[in-house]
């Protein structure tokens, strides 16, 4: 009853917390050409876990901003303008905070939950695995 498969259907969070689940969801998103949303989601988690004392946090924040938000990528398209502005200003003013991507991550997560995750649970990738 508590197999990985039954956990995957519980929530997006439980899917992404499982190695095989996250891997399979990634394959699905690659086919759907929106794997950037998942990479961004994980990047936000990784950023939050970084040591504040490290000087490289500014570099990483800038790099995440450039790669996913500054250009008009699929991530940028799913974010509210105010959220993008907030991150842009934080990077510009070098006001780096471990929670600076939290709002953006929540918005991307909500979109994934409502769309890609539901599609994944009825996708060939998932059903073949099952």
């Amino acid at each position: 009853p508590d197999s990985p498969l039954s956990r995957w259907t519980k929530s997006l969070h439980s899917l992404l917390g499982d190695q095989d689940g996250a891997h399979l969801f990634r394959i699905f998103l690659e086919r759907e050409k929106c794997v950037d949303t998942l990479d961004f989601w994980f990047a936000c988690n990784g950023f939050r876990q970084m040591d504040r004392q490290e000087t490289k946090t500014l570099r990483v924040a800038k790099a995440i901003y450039k790669r996913y938000i500054e250009n008009n990528s699929i991530v940028a398209k799913q974010l509210k303008p105010a959220t993008k502005t907030y991150i842009r200003d934080s990077v510009k003013k070098q006001q780096i905070d471990s929670a600076m991507f939290d709002q953006a991550q929540t918005e991307i997560q909500t979109t994934m939950e409502e769309n890609a995750y539901q599609m994944f649970l009825t996708s060939e990738v998932y059903l073949d695995y099952v």
């Binding site: 996250a22 570099r59 995440i64 790669r67």
Partner: peptide
């Protein structure tokens, strides 16, 4: 010094679920 892409990739990898 690694590239920006490398630092983002490391950030992603650090947050990925590990082997059970």
């Amino acid at each position: 010094l690694d590239s920006e892409d490398d630092s983002v990739q490391r950030c992603i990898t650090s947050a990925m679920p590990k082997h059970r």
